[in-house]
């Protein structure tokens, strides 16, 4: 190891402002350069265009565009339903992950595989299928309707669609952590006289909490922006079941580019903030894991 760092010493002696730690591995410049170019071309420049367009509105124009009652209501709907869906996924995702890791039952492999379905199934297909299922003459809807529960064309419908979309995130982040949990700690807890429930609360749950939070946050972040699966099932009533992405589309179709850009920019900032938070969570998770 010492040899290696000595060998690469000349490269790293750029000064204390050196951008990276030394390494003998080649290709840093090439891959980072390519990454940055591609990232800029595909993501950063177009997004900068969006922000520039919004900046053209001026602060007051921007503010008045995103604080109309209708926009605020759409934000409430989007964030509220995404939050509920993420929480549902937190509970059931944990349950699914637990069952998949700890128990064996027939067909477990198939169940494990099918968890990823929402990643792979096109959102529009999911939206149409869910609407057909939950409308009053659908397989599930016809069964819920007599009980007075309406799902399709209400905010509950949005929650159903967003739960579908976010399902794999919690399972797939919790699963590996649960798998790696050392049995020794649980055994220790048991030998100290803890009940199974106490063991879960005091030993297992704290260990998987960061992963659970990361997964939930990911599900939430994905849900807020979701469009394809929601529009079919939502009902799209302003103030009740109109989500932000739909409102952006509506603004565009009214030729209100300024309004659409303003809302889109705000959403973009929210997405970015959420991702930063998630990455910090993940860093926390890694440090917990290592320590």
């Amino acid at each position: 190891m010492t040899d290696i760092s000595l060998r690469s010493a000349p490269q790293m002696r750029v000064g204390r402002w050196s951008l990276r730690k030394p390494s003998v591995l080649p290709g840093f410049g090439l891959t980072l350069g390519f990454t940055l170019c591609y990232l800029s071309l595909i993501v950063l420049i177009p997004l900068a265009g969006l922000i520039l367009a919004a900046a053209g509105l001026g602060w007051s124009g921007f503010w008045s565009a995103v604080t109309t009652p209708r926009v605020l209501a759409a934000f409430r709907v989007s964030f509220g339903t995404s939050m509920i869906a993420a929480l549902i996924n937190a509970v059931f995702g944990l349950m699914v992950a637990w069952v998949l890791v700890r128990y064996s039952f027939p067909g477990k492999k198939i169940v494990d595989a099918i968890v990823d379905l929402p990643f792979a199934l096109p959102t529009a297909v999911a939206g149409i299928a869910l609407t057909a299922l939950y409308s009053r003459n659908g397989w599930i809807g016809s069964w819920l309707e007599p009980m007075g529960i309406k799902v399709a064309f209400t905010p509950i419908g949005i929650i159903v669609a967003l739960t579908f979309i976010g399902l794999p995130f919690v399972v797939r982040t919790v699963q590996p952590v649960l798998q790696d949990l050392a049995p020794e700690e649980e055994e220790a807890a048991v030998s100290l006289g803890a009940t199974r429930w106490q063991t879960f609360c005091r030993v297992i749950f704290p260990a998987i909490l960061p992963a659970l939070m990361t997964g939930t946050a990911l599900a939430f972040a994905r849900a807020v922006g979701e469009f394809g699966s929601v529009i079919f099932i939502a009902g799209n009533m302003p103030g009740i079941s109109e989500i932000i992405p739909l409102l952006i589309i509506i603004k565009l179709e009214q030729f209100d580019y300024a309004g659409a850009t303003a809302i889109a920019t705000l959403m973009l900032m929210v997405s970015f903030a959420m991702l930063l938070a998630i990455n910090m969570l993940q860093a926390w998770m890694r440090s917990r894991h290592a320590g």
């Binding site: 177009p46 997004l47 979701e226 469009f227 589309i249 889109a264 959420m274």
Partner: peptide, 20 residues
């Protein structure tokens, strides 16, 4: 985080930026 960004940006916005 920037690489992750497209994942949480609404698809509607992803289309819209190219239109802009």
């Amino acid at each position: 985080t920037l690489i992750d960004l497209p994942f949480s940006v609404s698809p509607v916005i992803s289309g819209m930026v190219y239109v802009l």
